[in-house]
Design a protein around this nucleic acid. Structure first.
Lengths: 335, 335
DNA sequence: CCTCATGTGCTCAATTTGAGTATAAGTGTG
DNA sequence: CACACTTATACTCAAATTGAGCACATGAGG
């Protein structure tokens, strides 16, 4: 019996996609690879026996294959190639989701193996240049400009997205559909005074995708949308994976102390706040944020003083590693 | 180039494990298959070219292979075999986690393919007998007796587990290790007045596993532990998958209205409360629970009356399906 | 009619949250 | 050096939420 790879059942390869996040100058950045057909071939070594369609020369998430004989676990497989290729030590790693849709990788299909991708979120502090060719740190709001509310509602929402959504709602075939679309747009995009919820990143992206308002969903006939307006597209379904990661991280920081994985060893409370704000894309009330952090006891004063604040010098704090185990239940819940 | 199934890289098969949950008579039940070597062979059709070790004739989670040529998505693959085999319509399905550890399936190894399992949580209401041979609904507290706090702290905790944990803590090699173990036991098992957290199901199981306090982790030399005391073991790593599912579901009901997937079309508020209690393994304050539910507006009075309550008749309610989209942010947060 | 069991409305204090005022302690400027 | 400007930090206060409980309603069964 032909176990597993039985041709009649189709073949499967497992890929590991990493969303590697760091904060650089108060911006939430992800490591992306600028693909040309050549670098793609080099990267996807085992996968690219076929050329990529022209369309897919987009920025991509770093990707590595999973070798069942070499890697004891999925996570160790991920860690090994990421650390090897980026020279970064990755502290926190979390499995996000496994993506197995047919057609998610255009190179599959007739004869090609099905590519099932396990997405991971990794948090790093160290942002030295990586050894990955063509890899750069890119703000994640580059891909999701409507997610950054740190300076109030993003202009692109008011000016472009919401009108387009209203048109999409109005273009419904039936009344039911219209109501459903309206409802959905309200929840995800905060139409008509519905509150904005920072965690619905994936839900928003999927709505835009279905409504044909992002470039990935263009059919190739209509002319592509202006890129800087609806965010930069990514290769394959990578923007979806990134949306999953952002949503997950935004949710997680509210109840687990994962922010500290992105912080330097010591930091001021305002620096911490800026990082939380960068991730969640919102603004926080400074005094209340400070009260919250102190109450949780996640942090302790080092006694040292930071004086490059531009104002009164601030105490430097350190994350109390002890509490990583202690009270799993606490993060930096804001709003 | 031998794509994907390249022998030098090892082969991979993808399996789909389902934790199918229903509430029957106020107990949270999961569908398990009582494996004999024969049924196992039938079930794991593509996988069992090798006999299972004797040890693994345990209860197992229903399992189905993923056929990349037949199934467009992982989820549809799961849905199709579950619905076909159980005759149950499954409403809610959620991907849990992808398990790819080497050695998680003893049938891999020399020459065998690596079995990567994608675990899913499915919620059903309908509990008619299934068409799966040897499948039965089993209370999940059968496998995790220490997780049921509905009648106060479970006796097994005080009498057996906590003493065993203290012994494990005391048996540490170094002072650091002792402190770490103590800390961890406090958080997960609520030692010494640390509060019990219902969501840490997996963390508790893993601690017991590492401390050699559950049967799966027995080395085969020492005599097996009394089963009814530390919960019934399951095949392979299925108890871990189940723990993941319970923890996830307990967390989820607090912020998403997923409980209703387990409810009949109409129900009284007490019935709803009992279901939440069954899932979370805790007791809730009746009046406050009612206040919470009403405030959220998740539910509407049908006008009908249930009089089989044993006391004053109760109003029957219905879940407002509309809110499934509406405010994603709300569940039945208790405690 | 009385008891028992549950359903349902309401109270009340403790705590948490959201928003703001006030003051401290640095930097750079005229 | 007085002054504006910036950030840090302490404290206040009202509104909202939560945890616990009392009281009464409404059925069944003796």
């Amino acid at each position: 019996m032909n176990v597993g790879g039985a041709p009649e059942n189709g073949q499967v390869v497992i890929g590991l996609n990493a969303v590697i996040v760091a904060i650089i100058e108060e911006q939430p950045k992800v490591l992306v690879v600028q693909h040309t057909p050549e670098t793609l071939t080099a990267q996807h070594e085992t996968l690219t026996d076929r050329a990529l369609p022209h369309d897919d020369r987009h920025e991509a998430l770093p990707f590595g294959p999973f070798y069942p004989l070499k890697h004891r676990t999925l996570e160790s497989g991920l860690r090994s190639w990421v650390e090897e290729q980026t020279n970064h030590e990755i502290g926190y790693v979390e499995q996000l989701y496994t993506f197995g849709n047919a057609g998610r990788d255009p190179r599959e299909g007739a004869g090609g193996p099905r590519v099932v991708s396990v997405g991971y979120l990794a948090l790093v502090q160290d942002t030295r240049p990586t050894a990955i060719e063509n890899a750069v740190w890119q703000s994640w709001y580059h891909y999701f400009p409507w997610e950054d509310w740190r300076d109030g509602p993003p202009r692109i929402l008011e000016k472009d997205i919401i009108p387009a959504l209203r048109k999409w709602i109005a273009g419904s075939a039936t009344r039911e559909q219209r109501e459903e679309r309206y409802e959905r747009a309200c929840i995800t995009f905060g139409l008509d005074d519905t509150p904005w919820s920072d965690e619905l990143v994936l839900e928003r992206y999927e709505l835009l995708y279905e409504a044909n308002l992002v470039n990935e969903s263009q059919d190739g006939k209509s002319k592509p949308l202006p890129v800087d307006c609806r965010g930069t597209p990514m290769a394959l379904d990578h923007r979806r994976i990134l949306a999953t990661a952002i949503g997950r991280l935004r949710g997680k920081i509210k109840y687990r102390p994962v922010v500290f994985e992105l912080m330097p060893p010591t930091f001021t409370l305002l620096q911490l706040q800026r990082v939380v704000e960068a991730l969640s894309g919102t603004q926080l009330h400074k005094q209340n944020f400070r009260r919250l952090i102190e109450k949780k006891g996640l942090v302790e004063d080092t006694g040292k003083i930071e004086s490059q604040t531009g104002g009164r010098p601030a105490s430097q704090f350190r994350f109390r590693r002890e509490v990583l185990m202690e009270r799993q239940a606490l993060g930096v819940r804001h709003n």
